[in-house]
Amino acid sequence: DVEPGKFYKGVVTRIEKYGAFINLNEQVRGLLRPRDMISLRLENLNVGDEIIVQAIDVRPEKREIDFKYIP
Rank of each mutant, 00 (worst) to 15 (best):
T13I: 09
L31E: 01
K17L: 12
E3T: 14
D1N: 14
G19M: 04
G5R: 07
G10K: 00
K17Q: 12
E43D: 13
R33T: 03
D66C: 06
E26Q: 14
I22P: 00
F7I: 08
S39V: 10
R14T: 07
L42I: 12
D36K: 04
D66N: 09
I22L: 04
V58F: 08
L24I: 13
E26W: 15
V12S: 00
V2I: 15
V53E: 00
V11P: 00
L40Q: 06
I15F: 02
N25R: 07
A55T: 08
I52Q: 06
I38L: 12
L24P: 00
E50T: 15
S39A: 13
K17I: 13
R63D: 11
P71Q: 08
V2A: 05
Y18T: 05
Y8T: 01
G19C: 03
R33D: 03
L24Q: 01
K9D: 04
V11A: 05
G5S: 06
D36N: 14
I38P: 08
S39C: 13
G30Y: 02
E64K: 08
R35E: 10
G19F: 06
G30D: 01
I56R: 07
L31K: 03
R59Y: 06
I65R: 02
R35Q: 12
G48K: 04
P4E: 11
I65T: 03
Q54W: 11
L24Y: 02
G10R: 00
K6E: 09
G19H: 03
K68H: 07
Q27P: 03
D57S: 15
N23G: 09
E26T: 14
V28W: 15
N46H: 15
K68T: 08
G5M: 09
E3C: 10
E64G: 07
N23F: 09
P34T: 10
G48Q: 04
I56C: 06
Y69V: 04
I38E: 13
K68M: 13
D57N: 15
V28R: 06
R41M: 12
Q54Y: 13
D66I: 10
D1I: 15
E3V: 15
D36A: 06
G5T: 05
N25L: 04
E16I: 08
I51D: 00
F67P: 01
G19R: 04
E26Y: 14
I65G: 03
Q54F: 13
I70W: 13
I38A: 11
P60M: 10
G19D: 01
I51C: 04
A20Q: 00
D66R: 13
G48P: 01
L24K: 00
T13K: 07
A55P: 05
E61P: 07
I51Y: 02
L40V: 08
R63G: 15
E64P: 03
V47L: 13
V12Y: 02
P34W: 10
R35M: 10
K9C: 11
K17M: 11
S39D: 15
V53A: 02
Y18F: 13
L45C: 02
V2T: 04
D66V: 09
P60S: 11
L42Q: 03
G5H: 07
G30M: 04
R59C: 04
K68P: 01
L24F: 04
D57R: 15
L24R: 01
I38K: 10
E26L: 12
N23Q: 13
V47F: 05
I51K: 00
V47G: 02
I22Q: 01
I70N: 11
P34F: 08
Q54I: 13
P60T: 10
F7W: 13
E64W: 14
N25P: 04
K17P: 15
E50R: 15
I51Q: 00
N23V: 09
E50N: 13
N25F: 09
I51M: 07
E61Y: 07
V53K: 00
E16Y: 12
R63C: 10
V11M: 11
P4C: 10
L32I: 04
E64M: 12
P34Y: 08
P71I: 07
R41S: 14
R35D: 09
R14G: 08
D57C: 10
I52M: 11
M37C: 05
E16Q: 09
L31H: 03
V12I: 13
F7S: 12
R33P: 01
E16W: 11
Y8M: 02
F21D: 02
K68G: 14
V28E: 06
I70D: 14
N44Y: 11
I65D: 02
A20Y: 03
Q54M: 15
V28G: 04
R14F: 07
F21E: 04
A55S: 04
A55Q: 02
E64L: 14
F7L: 08
K62W: 08
E43G: 10
R41T: 15
R41Y: 11
I15T: 03
Y18A: 05
L45G: 00
K9L: 12
N44G: 09
D57E: 14
R59I: 04
P34I: 11
N44E: 15
G10A: 06
I51G: 00
V58W: 08
D49K: 05
L42C: 03
R14S: 11
V58N: 06
L40C: 08
F67M: 04
R33I: 04
P4F: 09
V11W: 15
V58T: 08
R33S: 04
Y8S: 01
P60R: 10
G10Y: 02
P71E: 08
P60F: 09
R59G: 05
G19Q: 03
K9I: 12
K6Q: 11
L32W: 04
I65F: 06
D57W: 09
G5L: 09
Y18G: 05
V53I: 08
L40P: 02
Y69Q: 05
E43H: 12
N44V: 09
L42T: 04
I65H: 04
R35H: 10
I70Y: 12
R41V: 11
Q27A: 14
N44A: 13
P4M: 13
Y18V: 07
A55K: 03
R33E: 02
F7M: 09
E3P: 05
Y18P: 01
G48I: 01
G30N: 01
Y69I: 04
K68Q: 11
P34M: 09
L40I: 12
R63K: 14
Y8I: 02
